[in-house]
Nucleic acid binder design. Structure first.
Lengths: 160, 160
DNA sequence: CGGGGTTCTGTTACTATATAACTTCCTGGG
DNA sequence: CCCAGGAAGTTATATAGTAACAGAACCCCG
């Protein structure tokens, strides 16, 4: 197995779901985009664009920064991956393929473990609501929100 | 006047408060650090490190990236400024000097206007609470949280 | 079939953001 | 005086992201 968020079979299922989602949206999950998505999904942690590029080069020797950034932009637009701003890195969207959000952004939050680097995605409606209320209280029309909490995950807390 | 968040008199008051806060913490607000803080405070919008560097060079011709980054690191540690991750830019801490948080991080959120670029800092206890609860629900020990909402400020919404 | 878009990818070059590593300077304590 | 530690200077480099144009593949339409 290639390490990562799940077995090869799970990976395949997620890629197929992505394929289906793109088909529905009328956009193409090309080979390149699929490769980059697979690289993001099989990582245990958020990966930076250049880390992805290095890995991509093993399959596609001519790859250059724009190669990977264009694929990432596409995947972000389709809501298949998210960017972790604090880390300048990318992770697979936890909810992708569950079609309660076919394509495009949904409210989500990241919990970033400072010890093991694992990044947990949650989607807490109370956080979203509190933010929307706080914003509207000052007349601000809220769009997409970046919410990233640094701390210690349950596993690392249990060890020490 | 030098443009920015307030008059020269207000600036002086904020710098003095910063000085006092550093003295209490047993750290030095050196001339360099004070200059960088002044540059951040007098800007209307978040400024990137290199924008600050350009301005700093007028006062300190030999300044290089580490010059400004080191000062920024110090100011961040003292809680005198914040970094806006989405913009890779820095703003003065709205509450600094009010000593309900002498030194070090306090929970805050940014509302970033996509139109005028203005960044409003708020400190909503409900948001902080919702986040803390959501984190603890999955056994995560929450530390500092980055919360940045992109959208449209009241002023820009009123115009169009 | 043959333009002529559009979309995707390749390629080169570059800009922007951030840090490493070593040196120098200054200050305060013995 | 000497030295320990913090701050700043200096050089070089690492990391992140984009601009701009060229080529290829595809599809539609006439």
């Amino acid at each position: 197995m290639a390490a990562g968020q799940g077995s090869a079979a799970v990976m395949e299922r997620r890629l197929s779901a992505a394929e289906a989602q793109c088909a529905r949206a009328g956009v193409q999950l090309t080979e390149l985009r699929r490769q980059v998505l697979a690289l993001v999904l099989e990582a245990e942690q958020p990966l930076g664009a250049y880390a992805l590029l290095d890995r991509l080069k093993t399959q596609r020797p001519g790859a250059a920064p724009p190669t990977v950034y264009r694929a990432l932009d596409f995947l972000l637009e389709q809501g298949l991956i998210h960017k972790v701003e604090r880390l300048n890195a990318f992770v697979g969207c936890a909810g992708a393929g569950h079609d309660h959000h076919a394509g495009h952004q949904h409210a989500h939050q990241f919990l970033i473990c400072r010890q093991c680097g694992q990044t947990i995605e949650i989607s807490d409606p109370m956080v979203a609501r509190a933010l929307a209320e706080a914003a509207s209280r000052v007349g601000f029309q809220a769009g997409h929100a970046v919410v990233e909490v640094e701390g210690r995950c349950a596993t690392c807390a249990a060890v020490a």
